[in-house]
Design a protein around this nucleic acid. Sequence first.
DNA 1: CTCAGCTCCTGCGGGC
DNA 2: TGCCCGCAGGAGCTGA
Length: 287
Amino acid sequence: MPELPEVETVRRGLAPALEGQRIARAELRRDGLRWPFPPDMAAKLGGARVVQLRRRSKYLLADLDRGETLLIHLGMSGRMVVSGMAGTQMPGQFHFDHPAPEKHDHVILHMESGARITFNDPRRFGAMDLIPTALLEGHKLLAALGPEPLGNSFNRAFLAARLKGRRTAIKAALLDQRIVAGLGNIYVCEALFRARIHPARAAGRIGADRLDALVGAIRDTLRDAIAAGGSSLRDYRQADGELGYFQHAFRVYGREGDACILPQCNGIIRRMVQGGRSSYYCPRCQR
DNA sequence: CTCAGCTCCTGCGGGC
DNA sequence: TGCCCGCAGGAGCTGA
């Protein structure tokens, strides 16, 4: 589920519980997720202090004071729950215990502060790895990633170069993390709608001005989603410390059969399957 | 190099 | 009510 905005929101929510704080103990409740954990991961995390919590694409990166970085990917169904911190209890309840571990709680970071950070992931497509910080950029999962879509190096010239000559659908191209990092199925649909580009259009056959619009639409879509996540983050932290799930008002995603929201357009949102995944679009205003 | 298809795993909602 | 099916927000890997 989590795409770049959700991961960024989780990062912001986790930062107060992690940055500058020491991990007392890492409790691994299974051997791995998508891949096995490094055999010494629990031992190396115990006693380490988190210097900084960063994000690259959909990865969370917790730099430790011992020269290593904990890499976390939430996969499709991963969530983070913070408990035992001020502000995470239900209002009006005297509820300072930690909740009992639930099904699919796979990793629990017990912080020296008394807070706990629980990683829950039913489908186990998520991942955790621990690697030397100096080798991070060469890490298999990060090395081939394209630029951050909100960064300066993601612009029309870059995108044009990467899409040139490609006959694959623009939808598939934008899901390719090597072209631009952090987009997933939802925000690709939303950005293509904002840019009025049909998801099946050949990636290499989009004119310069429309590519400009696409870059802007991707940025605007992600910024809006991060802003929405920030507001729901406060609600979630007040409620139960759970991070990672919040509702956005999508313009096309999941809205098959609804009227297009553009005032002049009388189109009906359609769903099509591309590469086994649903694309939502307005056939009238997306070309 | 590009691209399509398969795969991992669990949970949920719809149809019968 | 229960069962079966399709579908779900990711992404690595394989083989053409």
